[in-house]
Design a protein around this nucleic acid. Structure first.
Lengths: 216, 216
DNA sequence: TTGACAACATACCCGGTAGTATGTTCCTCT
DNA sequence: AGAGGAACATACTACCGGGTATGTTGTCAA
C-alpha cells in the first residue's frame, strides 16, 4: 500500500505542478512567467519545481505535451469511428472546440509553444524537443486534414487551398482560447452552445451545405 | 528648406524606430524583446530609442496605436460608402484581412497589446494607456458589429450571438497573422487570393448565402 | 537504530535588462 | 563666432530571474 500511496502522491504532485504552470504560463506568457511565480501559486518554492523539472523550458514543454495528449484522447475515438464524412467532421470539430475550452490553460501553452518554435529563440536542445512536440501537433492536424479532403472529394465541402482551409478551421475552433472566460451561472450547457456556434461557423466556412449541419 | 529636411528626418527616424520595434516585438514577443534588440536592428544603441521614447512600454504602445491607425485609414472610407449590406461586408472583410497581411508586424503588436491588457501585469499608468488603445480597438470592432447586425436584420446573415460571431469573423480574418509568411514569387495577386479565401470563409461562417458572395 | 535517499526549502551566484547619468558631435540661430 | 540645444553614444546602476549548491526533514529498508 505504501508504494501505491507514494506513486499516487508523486503523480499528484506532478499534476499539481503542471496545472499551476499551465495557469501561470497562460496568465503571463512564457517569457514573463518566473519559476518563482509557479512555485508561489503552489505555496511552495523553487526547490519543489527544480526537483521535478530540469528547467523552465522543460516544465513548459511538459505542459505542451500534456495538452496535446489530452487532445488525442478526445479526438482519437471519434476519428476511429466509421461515419459519414459530414457527421464525422461535425463531431470532430465540436469535440475539438470543447476540448479547447475544457483544458484552456494547457491549450494556450500549446499555442505559445508553436509560436516559440517559429520564433526560434531556443537552444538546439530545446529546439529538438519543440520539433518533436510540433510533430505531435502535426499528426493531430493530419487527422483533420484527411477528413477535410475526403469531404472535398465527396463534394460536401468547398475550398481552394486545403492548408488555408485547415488553418481557418482551427482558428475558428481555437478562438475561445482568446475570448472565452468563465462566468457566473455558466454550466456545461452554456459551454456546449458556445462550442456549437464555433463548430457551425467553421463548418459553414468550409462550405458544408446548411442541411448537412445538424445537431452540432 | 533646412527646417523641412529636419522635420522629415525626425519623422523618418520615428518611423524607423517604429518599424524596427514592430518587427522585434513580433519576432520575440514583448516580454522577450529588449530595447537593445530594437536598437541593434537599427544599427544604433539604446540612447537613440530612449531619446524618443520614455520606456519600452511607451514604444510598444506607439506601435499598437500606429497599427490601429492604419486599420482605420483602410476601413473608414469603405464603411462610409453607401452600399448594399452584403457587398459592404465583403469589402470590409477583404480590406481588413489585406491590412492584416500588409502591416503584419504592427498587427501582431496590436494582438499582443490586447493580451497584455487582459493579463493586467502593468503599472496603473500603462494600464490607462492600454485602456485607451483598447477603446480605439473597440471602436474599430464596432464598425463591423453594426454592419453585422444590419446584415442579420436584413436576413442575409445568420448567427446566434453577435459577440461570438464577431469574434469568429475577426479570428478568421486575422488568422494570417499566425500562419502567413512571405515566400519567393509571391506577388500582390497571391496575397489577394489568400485574403479572399479568408474573407469567403468568414462570410460563409456568418451564414451569408453563396450567391451573395461574389468577387471577393 | 541507522543509513540512505526522496522531497523539498534556503541561500547564493551570475548574466541579462530597464532605465539613468553623462559625454560627444553637429547644427542652428542670433 | 559662439552659445545652446537636439540627437545621439557610452558608461553605469539596480534589480530580477534562471539555475545551482547546500541544508533540512521525513520515510523506508535492512
Amino acid at each position: 500500500m505504501s508504494a501505491s500511496v507514494s506513486a499516487n502522491s508523486v503523480r499528484s504532485v506532478q499534476e499539481d505542478i503542471l496545472n499551476a504552470a499551465a495557469q501561470c504560463f497562460m496568465d503571463r506568457g512564457y517569457a514573463a512567467t518566473s519559476i518563482d511565480d509557479v512555485a508561489r501559486s503552489l505555496g511552495a518554492t523553487k526547490g519543489r519545481i527544480y526537483h521535478h523539472y530540469r528547467s523552465k523550458a522543460d516544465l513548459f514543454f511538459d505542459v505542451y505535451r500534456h495538452g496535446m495528449q489530452m487532445n488525442f484522447d478526445v479526438l482519437s475515438p471519434i476519428a476511429a469511428q466509421s461515419l459519414p464524412t459530414p457527421e464525422k467532421l461535425q463531431r470532430m470539430t465540436k469535440a475539438h472546440c470543447l476540448a479547447m475550452i475544457n483544458t484552456l490553460p494547457f491549450q494556450r501553452c500549446v499555442w505559445e509553444g508553436v509560436e516559440l518554435l517559429k520564433r526560434g529563440a531556443t537552444t538546439p536542445e530545446q529546439r529538438d524537443v519543440l520539433l518533436e512536440l510540433q510533430a505531435m501537433r502535426d499528426n493531430y492536424s493530419e487527422i483533420f486534414r484527411e477528413v477535410l479532403e475526403q469531404a472535398k472529394a465527396e463534394g460536401v465541402a468547398h475550398f481552394e487551398s486545403s492548408s488555408i482551409a485547415l488553418q481557418l478551421m482551427f482558428m475558428s475552433l481555437n478562438s475561445p482560447l482568446f475570448w472565452f472566460q468563465r462566468r457566473e451561472g455558466q454550466n456545461d450547457t452554456t459551454i456546449d452552445q458556445i462550442a456549437s456556434q464555433c463548430a457551425i461557423f467553421a463548418l459553414r466556412g468550409l462550405g458544408l451545405k446548411e442541411d448537412l449541419i445538424t445537431d452540432v
